[in-house]
Design a protein around this nucleic acid. Structure first.
Length: 519
RNA sequence: GGCCCCAUCGUCUAACCCGGUCAGGACACAGGGUUUUCAUCCCUGUAAUGCGGGUUCAAAUCCCGCUGGGGUCACCA
C-alpha cells in the first residue's frame, strides 16, 4: 500500500471539542502507526471573520497533547494551501469539469420554490428529493436567465438509478439507494464551494488514503463517493468512528447542551472543580470555558497523558486488560478494526483515575513546573519566582505526595503560603475547642518553641514523647495541631505542615487558635 | 417521518469475524486492612449478554423479527 495519509479538518470554531479531539487522535494514531503522514487541514469554507483567533485554541490543543502534524496549518506542505478558504480555484476548476461533462448543472430554483417542494413532499409523506426543474430549461430560457443575471447554484447530478455501497473499516458494508438522495449543491451563487464538495476535492488532491471521521458524516459518504467517481479520483478508504456521547448518555456530546450538563452528576464534579480553580485564579474568561473543550482540562491542571489515555479508551481497546497507555503505546498498537461501533459516553471519573496514575508517574521537577503557574496566578507567590521560593514549593509538593492529583491541587494548601486561612469550624470545635485539649496544645506549643532542630523527625519525636509522658493519645494532639495551624481536618502530614510553616508561624497560629478556642 | 447506524455489569470495554471460558479487565460503588487525618497501597464484594423466534449437541457469538437508543436529512461543517 502506498504511504498512509490521514487528515483532521476542523472548522475554526474558537475551541477544540473533546469528541473532535478523539477523532483527531485516531487519525494521528493510524497515520503514525503506519509510518504515514498526518495532515491538519482547516475547513473554513464558511469564512469565519476572525479566523485566526478562532483557530488558535484548536492548534493549542494539538500542541498541548503533543499531536504533531506533517502538513497543514502553519507548517504548510506539498499540497498547500491547507486552508479551504484559499483553495477556491481548485474547487471552481473541479466544478467546471463536472459541468462540462454534464455531471453537474446550474439550478435557478429560488429558495421559495425549494421550500415549497419540501413542504409538499412532507405533506404527501414521501421522501424529499429536489425537483430538477432547471434541467428542463430550454437554451433560450437559460440565455435569458443569464442575461437577467439570475443567481444559480451548481448542483451535482446524482445518478438516481444506482445503489452505492461502502466498505467501511469500522462499520462494514453499508448500502444506500441513490434514488433517495437530493442533488447536492456544490457551488454557491458566488462561486464558493460547499463542504461536501471541497472535502472531496481536497481529500483527492492531498492524496488522503484514509478518511477517518465521526459517524455523523456517514450519511455524507454516498454523495462523496459519487463525487469522487465523477471527478475520476481514486476512492479513499473510509472509517466512521462513533461519536463521543455525554457522560452516562447515548447522545452526542454537544457544546450547545452545556447548561444541561451542569446537572449531569459526573460533569457536575468537573464544573465545580473548574469554578473553584478559576475562582481562585480570578480568571475572567472562566465563563467561556467548559468541559466539552479540551482547554478546560489543561486549565484546571490535567496532564496531556491523562487526557490522551482517556480519549484513547473511548471506543478503542488495546486488548482485554490494558488500561494505562502512553501515546507511544497506543501508536504501537492502534488499528481501526479494534474501534468499537457503538457510541461511548465520556467518563470524567475514568479520566480522573488516569490523571491520578500519570501524575504519580510524573518526575518532581515537572510537577513543580506544572504547579508554579497556579501559585503565581493566585498570587500565593511573587514573580519572578526566587530560588528560595522554588525550593519551598518543591518541598510542599513533596509533602503533598499523591494528594496532588491536578496541578491546581496545589491551591488547596494555600495556608502554607499565606497567613489568612479559614477554619473548618465544625472540626475546630471537635478537635480543639474540647475539654482538656487547649491545655495540651499550649504545653506542646512551649515544647515547639524550644525545639532544635525544627524538622519533621524532631517534631514527630517531640509529640510522641509528650504523649508518652502524659498518657494522652497521640491522635488528640495531632488533630489539634493540624486544625490550629492549617484550619483544615485533612491535608499533608501534620509534621510536614508544621515544619514547612516554620517555628515562628506555627507558634503564632497555635496562639491565635488558643485565643479562638477561648472565645 | 425517510434514510442510515448501534445494542455485554451504573460507565468504558474483552470474548463475537472463525459458536463450546464460572462472560474477563478497568472506572465507579460497598466492605475490610495499612497509614491515628486525607491521599496512596492491598484484599474482598455487588453488578451485564434488551425481548422473541430460528439454525445447532451447544448461541453473547450465526440468521430473522421486535423493542429500544442514536445519527442525519441546508445555498453549515
Amino acid at each position: 500500500m502506498s504511504t498512509v495519509r490521514t487528515r483532521f479538518a476542523p472548522s475554526p470554531t474558537g475551541y477544540m471539542h473533546i469528541g473532535g479531539m478523539r477523532t483527531a487522535l485516531f487519525n494521528w494514531l493510524w497515520a503514525r502507526h503506519c509510518g504515514g503522514k498526518f495532515i491538519l487541514r482547516i475547513d473554513d469554507t464558511d469564512q469565519a471573520r476572525n479566523q485566526e483567533a478562532a483557530l488558535a485554541p484548536i492548534l493549542r490543543a494539538f500542541r498541548w497533547l503533543g499531536l504533531d502534524w506533517d502538513e497543514g496549518a502553519e507548517v504548510g506542505g506539498p499540497f498547500a494551501p491547507y486552508y479551504q478558504s484559499q483553495r477556491g480555484e481548485l474547487y471552481r476548476a473541479g466544478a467546471a469539469r463536472l459541468e462540462r461533462a454534464g455531471l453537474a448543472y446550474r439550478d435557478f430554483s429560488t429558495k421559495a420554490e425549494l421550500d415549497a417542494d419540501r413542504k409538499q413532499a412532507e405533506r404527501e409523506k414521501r421522501p424529499y428529493i429536489n425537483i430538477r426543474r432547471s434541467l428542463d430549461l430550454s437554451d433560450s430560457d437559460k440565455a435569458q436567465f443569464a442575461a437577467e443575471g439570475r443567481p444559480w447554484v451548481l448542483r451535482f447530478l446524482i445518478p438516481r438509478d444506482e445503489k452505492v455501497t461502502l466498505d467501511d473499516h469500522i462499520r462494514g458494508r453499508v448500502e444506500w439507494d441513490a434514488g433517495l438522495l437530493p442533488d447536492p449543491v456544490i457551488l454557491r451563487p458566488d462561486g464558493s464551494a460547499l463542504y461536501n464538495f471541497a472535502t472531496v476535492v481536497d481529500d483527492a488532491q492531498m492524496q488522503i488514503t484514509h478518511v477517518i471521521r465521526a459517524e455523523e458524516h456517514l450519511s455524507n459518504t454516498p454523495i462523496q463517493i459519487f463525487l469522487h467517481r465523477a471527478l475520476g479520483n481514486a476512492l479513499p478508504e473510509f472509517a466512521h468512528v462513533p461519536y463521543v456521547a455525554a457522560p452516562g448518555s447515548k447522545e452526542k456530546l454537544s457544546k450547545r447542551k452545556i447548561e444541561q450538563y451542569r446537572k449531569n452528576p459526573q460533569f457536575q464534579k468537573l464544573f465545580e472543580r473548574g469554578d473553584e480553580v478559576f475562582g481562585q485564579l480570578g480568571l475572567a474568561e472562566s465563563s467561556a470555558l467548559d468541559p466539552v473543550m479540551v482547554e478546560y482540562y489543561e486549565r484546571i491542571g490535567y496532564l496531556p497523558e491523562a487526557v490522551l489515555n482517556a480519549l484513547g479508551r473511548i471506543g478503542w481497546s488495546l486488548d482485554d486488560t490494558t488500561e494505562i497507555m502512553s501515546l507511544a503505546t497506543m501508536k504501537e498498537h492502534f488499528t481501526l478494526d479494534r474501534v468499537v461501533k457503538a457510541p461511548a459516553g465520556f467518563d470524567p471519573d475514568k479520566l480522573f483515575s488516569f490523571q491520578s496514575h500519570w501524575m504519580k508517574e510524573l518526575p518532581p521537577e515537572q510537577k513543580l513546573a506544572g504547579c508554579l503557574p497556579y501559585l503565581t496566578s493566585a498570587e500565593l507567590i511573587g514573580q519572578p519566582v526566587s530560588d528560595r521560593t522554588t525550593e519551598f514549593v518543591r518541598e510542599v509538593i513533596a509533602a503533598m505526595g499523591d494528594r496532588l492529583k491536578l496541578f491546581s491541587d496545589i491551591l488547596s494548601v494555600d495556608f502554607l503560603f499565606r497567613d489568612q486561612f479559614t477554619y473548618d469550624e465544625k472540626n475546630f470545635d471537635k478537635r480543639v475547642r474540647k475539654e482538656g485539649v487547649p491545655g495540651h496544645l499550649a504545653a506542646f506549643r512551649d515544647i515547639l518553641a524550644g525545639l532544635e532542630p525544627f524538622t519533621v523527625p524532631a517534631i514527630e519525636a517531640a509529640l510522641s514523647a509528650y504523649c508518652q509522658e502524659t498518657g494522652e493519645p497521640t491522635g488528640t494532639l495531632i488533630h489539634a495541631l493540624r486544625l490550629s495551624t492549617t484550619g483544615q481536618p485533612v491535608g499533608p502530614g501534620v509534621y510536614d505542615c508544621v515544619a514547612l510553616l516554620g517555628r515562628e508561624k506555627t507558634i503564632a497560629r497555635i496562639d491565635a487558635s488558643l485565643e479562638k478556642a477561648r472565645s
